[in-house]
């Protein structure tokens, strides 16, 4: 997953939700070790009783585009595809300009 062009990750989820919790935790594990110096990461976790609360994951890119991901339908592969699709556009722009 191309994480170079991400500037912000905001998420709220419950780790006790077998579907969305796993997806978000997998996504956070994919961020590089120095992620906190290059992007703003805001993680909010619900408890066990709020496991069915809808989880949110919103991403911000360098060009200012914001992406809201629907965690009910998407799994980690789909999220990777979405992030890569926009990141490749940004990379192309970078290459052409620089």
């Amino acid at each position: 997953m191309l994480t170079k062009y991400l500037t912000g990750v905001t998420t709220a989820f419950s780790p006790f939700n077998a579907r969305s919790g796993k997806t978000v935790r997998n996504f956070l594990a994919l961020l590089p070790p120095n992620a906190r110096s290059t992007m703003a990461i805001d993680v909010k976790m619900f408890g066990q009783s709020d496991a069915q609360k809808p989880a949110t994951l919103s991403l911000k890119f360098k060009d200012g585009k914001e992406l809201q991901l629907d965690l009910e339908k998407m799994k980690i592969k789909d999220i990777q595809v979405e992030v890569d699709r926009h990141s490749r556009i940004l990379r192309r722009k970078d290459e052409l300009s620089g």
Binding site: F16, N17, A18, G21, K22, R25, N26, A29
Partner: peptide, 8 residues
């Protein structure tokens, strides 16, 4: 505990 047991 099963939903917790995934990932690193």
């Amino acid at each position: 505990l099963t939903p917790l047991l995934s990932g690193p």
